[in-house]
Structures are given as structure tokens and as C-alpha cells.
Simulated scan of single mutants.
Amino acid sequence: MKSEHSREQSMRSKPSSYESGEQLVTIDKELAKLITDDIITKARIKHLEALIDQCLDSKDEQLFMTLTAEYISLTR
């Protein structure tokens, strides 16, 4: 019991280390979101390239224009 009480007091006396740790977690979540978004965007670009190639093969001009506009917006 005594050690448990001492541990609780020790944790209360060090709020700055907890706050610093909390900031690191926030930064890590933001970094993970950036990385995930980048991976998803690159995958979508590759998928659009394949779809655009199919449109060229099938001569689907309307779909080609739609997909190309999205491709351009993602690659800028």
C-alpha cells in the first residue's frame, strides 16, 4: 500500500514529463496522417493512370477528360 501511494505522489509531481509525452503522441498522429494521405494519393494517381490508359484504348473521350482533370489536380 505504501509503495502504491508513493507512486501516485511521484506521478503527480511530474506533470511536465506527461505533458511532453502527450505532445509527442500528437505529433506522431499528425505524421502518421501525412504519411497515410501521401500513400493514398500516390495509389490513386497510379490507379488513375491505368484508367486513363484504358480510356485511350477504348476511345472514351468523356471519361478520359474527367479522369485527366482529377489526375492533374492530384499531381499539382
Rank of each mutant, 00 (worst) to 15 (best):
Leu31Gln: 10
Ile39Tyr: 02
Leu74Trp: 03
Ala32Gly: 00
His5Pro: 12
Ser73Ala: 10
Val25Glu: 12
Arg44Pro: 00
Thr75Ala: 02
Asp37Tyr: 07
Gln9Tyr: 02
Glu49Tyr: 14
Ile45Thr: 08
Ala50Gln: 15
Thr75Val: 08
Thr36Trp: 04
Phe64Arg: 01
Thr36Cys: 04
Asp57Phe: 08
Glu61Asp: 09
Phe64Tyr: 09
Asp28Ala: 10
Ile72Lys: 15
His5Trp: 11
Glu22Tyr: 11
Ile27Trp: 10
Ser3Phe: 13
Phe64Ala: 05
Arg12Ser: 06
Leu48Tyr: 03
Lys33Gly: 06
Phe64Trp: 01
Phe64Lys: 05
Val25Ser: 04
Leu24Asp: 10
Lys29Pro: 03
Ser16Met: 10
Arg44Gly: 00
Asp53Trp: 03
Glu4His: 08
Ala69Val: 08
Leu24Lys: 11
Leu34Ala: 00
Tyr18Ala: 14
Ser10Phe: 03
Leu34Ser: 01
Ser3Lys: 14
Thr26Met: 13
Ala50Tyr: 12
Met1Thr: 08
Arg44Gln: 03
Glu49His: 11
Glu61Ser: 09
Leu63Trp: 02
Asp28Phe: 10
Leu56Val: 07
Lys59Thr: 08
Leu67Arg: 09
Glu8Arg: 13
Lys59Cys: 04
Ser58Phe: 10
Lys42Phe: 00
Ile52Pro: 02
Lys2Ala: 14
Lys46Trp: 02
Thr36Gln: 03
Thr75Asn: 05
Glu70Thr: 08
Lys46Cys: 07
Glu49Gln: 14
Lys42His: 02
Ile35Gly: 01
Ser20Leu: 00
Ser13Lys: 10
Glu4Asp: 08
Arg44Leu: 01
Ser10Val: 06
Ser10Tyr: 07
Gln23Met: 07
Ser73Thr: 15
Asp28Ser: 11
Asp37Phe: 05
His5Cys: 06
Asp37Gly: 00
Glu70Ser: 15
Glu19Ser: 12
His5Leu: 10
Tyr71Thr: 00
Ala50Val: 14
Tyr71Val: 01
Thr66Cys: 06
Lys42Leu: 00
Ser13Arg: 04
Ser3Ala: 15
Lys2His: 15
Leu67Gln: 06
Lys33Leu: 06
Ile45Ala: 04
Leu31Asp: 04
Pro15Arg: 03
Ser10Met: 11
Ala50Leu: 15
Ile52Thr: 08
Leu24Cys: 09
Ser10Ile: 03
Leu24Gly: 09
Gln9Val: 03
His47Phe: 13
Glu19Thr: 09
Glu22Asp: 07
Leu56Tyr: 08
Ser6Leu: 10
Ser16Arg: 13
Met1Ala: 08
Asp60Ile: 00
Ser73Asp: 15
Gln54Arg: 06
Glu70Met: 11
Asp57Met: 12
Gln23Trp: 06
Gln54Pro: 05
Thr68Asp: 09
Ser13Val: 01
Ala43Thr: 11
Thr26Arg: 15
Ser10Asp: 12
Arg76Glu: 14
Ile35Cys: 01
Leu67Glu: 07
Met65Ile: 15
